[in-house]
């Protein structure tokens, strides 16, 4: 009798061992990320949406938190510790996992500024040497390789990132510090508003 009952238990253990490598995500401590970034990774307060982000950008970001190259206050407070013991393999695993999740737009910018923001995004402001964003980030702000997706990110996050380059943070992220220093406060507000609505 005892031998019979143990059979399903053994089988369950074997199944668990076979099943786990098939779904790589199960070996990743996803919850460590989603506590702050939201259970579907759509972002929550100061933690940005990471669902649907380009995987190379997520991986590079995690490594730049670990190396402290990314040094704005929220990074220092939360992400330096979170990434301190991250292996390259785990960083890549997180990056691929979150890049494949569906993303929905934050829609939390000022709608009245969206058309001005779009015009800056597409055309830049050549007369004041503001470059166009579309050439790197793409027609739908979808990102490209290591260049991040911006479409549908939260307004406050986008705004703070654009401001922080001018405050000297994350100086290694060429060419963004040089681009952002040309933007006025109104232009930053308009860009962040427009991008929050992009699908």
């Amino acid at each position: 009798m005892k031998r019979i009952t143990s059979k399903p238990a053994v089988l369950a253990i074997i199944m668990a061992c076979v099943a786990s490598p098939l779904s790589a995500q199960e070996s990743l401590p996803i919850r460590n990320c989603t506590w702050c970034h939201g259970s579907s990774a759509q972002g929550y307060t100061s933690a940005p949406r990471i669902a649907g982000q380009t995987h190379r950008y997520i991986e590079n970001s995690l490594l730049s938190f670990k190396s402290h190259a990314r040094d704005n206050p929220a990074s220092k407070q939360y992400m330096w510790g979170a990434a301190a013991n991250l292996s390259g393999e785990t960083a890549r695993g997180f990056a691929v996992y979150f890049s494949e999740l569906p993303a929905s737009p934050a829609n939390d910018g000022d709608e009245a500024l969206a058309s001005e923001g779009k015009s800056i995004y597409v055309e830049g402001r050549p007369a004041s040497n503001v470059v166009s964003c579309i050439v790197c980030h793409g027609p739908n702000a979808e990102g490209f390789e290591g260049i991040p997706r911006l479409g549908g990110m939260g307004h406050d996050y986008l705004k703070r990132r654009l401001e922080q380059w001018n405050e000297g943070y994350h100086a290694a992220a060429e060419p963004m510090p040089r681009i952002a220093k040309r933007l006025s406060a109104n232009e930053i507000e308009a860009l962040a508003s427009y991008l929050s609505f992009v699908r």
Partner: peptide, 14 residues
């Protein structure tokens, strides 16, 4: 800013 600090070009979306 777009064409590279030494004019070497840059690989963005375009």
């Amino acid at each position: 800013t777009c064409h590279g600090l030494s004019g070497e070009g840059y690989r963005g979306y375009f």
